[in-house]
Amino acid sequence: MSDSPLTPTADVSVRPAVPGDEGAVAAVQLAAWRSGHAEEVLGDVVLDQIDPAALAERWSAAITAPPGPGYRVLVAMHGPRLVGFASVAPVVAPQGSGDDTPGGEILALEVDPAARRQGHGSRLLAAVVDLLRDEDRATSVQTWVMAGDDAREQFLGSAGLGDVGARRVLGEQDDPREVREHLWGASI
């Protein structure tokens, strides 16, 4: 046995997504949606209609040809395995608000259900905040959270984000799968 006080650690990291990651990103997204939103919001019928190849193509485009400056996709790795991802975009203050400071919005942050509670989500969130602060000079971060997603609210709250009071509804008013979201944010 070694006399070193250091113990072996897993090879975990966050890096920018590269071409070839899109299939794993799509797989993580679908697994996370099935785990967290299948019953109460989206439903298996909706999730079964999502074409994994088409979803991977959309992630490929986001990785290789982002829609504008400041749009990024990051991935969490556990050894050679992609176990999570985050996408982030710049946020422009509402016209006439008088706020011209840059901010960022986390468009997606998902971790494979089998790899949760291992710090991957926290590493992704920290990397997003570092990028926003250091490269974009952003002073705030925000993200939309589905109403009733207690686990995500707890995660974001433990990281210093809070419900800022804004609400939105996605989908048609008569659709039983109407998605209600709350905006969470923080200064960075």
Rank of each mutant, 00 (worst) to 15 (best):
R81P: 13
A89N: 05
A32T: 12
G103R: 12
V92H: 06
M77E: 12
P69G: 04
V75R: 00
G104M: 12
T64P: 02
A89T: 15
W33I: 11
P113C: 01
A56E: 10
D51E: 15
L30R: 01
L107W: 07
P80F: 12
A53V: 15
D44R: 14
P102K: 02
G68T: 14
A61S: 15
G103Q: 02
W59Y: 14
V75H: 00
G68Q: 11
Q49K: 07
G43N: 10
G79Q: 07
D44H: 11
V111K: 03
L82T: 11
Q29F: 03
A114F: 01
A32R: 00
M77F: 06
Y71K: 08
L82E: 08
V92I: 08
S60Y: 11
G98S: 06
G84R: 05
P52F: 09
H78S: 14
G70M: 07
A86W: 10
D112M: 01
A56H: 01
D100Q: 08
G98I: 04
V41D: 05
S87E: 11
E105L: 05
T101L: 09
A38R: 06
L82R: 07
A89L: 10
I50T: 13
W59P: 02
V91M: 05
P69D: 09
G36K: 07
E40R: 10
G84D: 09
A56V: 08
R58M: 14
E40F: 08
I50R: 10
A32F: 15
A62L: 13
V25A: 14
V111H: 05
V88C: 15
G103K: 01
A38L: 02
D99S: 06
A24N: 00
D112G: 00
P94Y: 02
G68D: 15
G43F: 00
G43E: 00
G70K: 04
S60M: 13
G70D: 10
T64W: 09
Q49Y: 01
A61V: 15
I106A: 11
P94H: 07
E110D: 12
A93L: 01
T64L: 11
V92S: 11
A26Y: 02
D51R: 02
A54W: 14
E39R: 14
A62Q: 09
D112F: 00
G79D: 09
L107N: 14
D51P: 02
A114L: 10
A53Y: 06
W59T: 07
R81N: 08
I50Y: 08
G79W: 13
E105T: 06
A114G: 11
E110F: 15
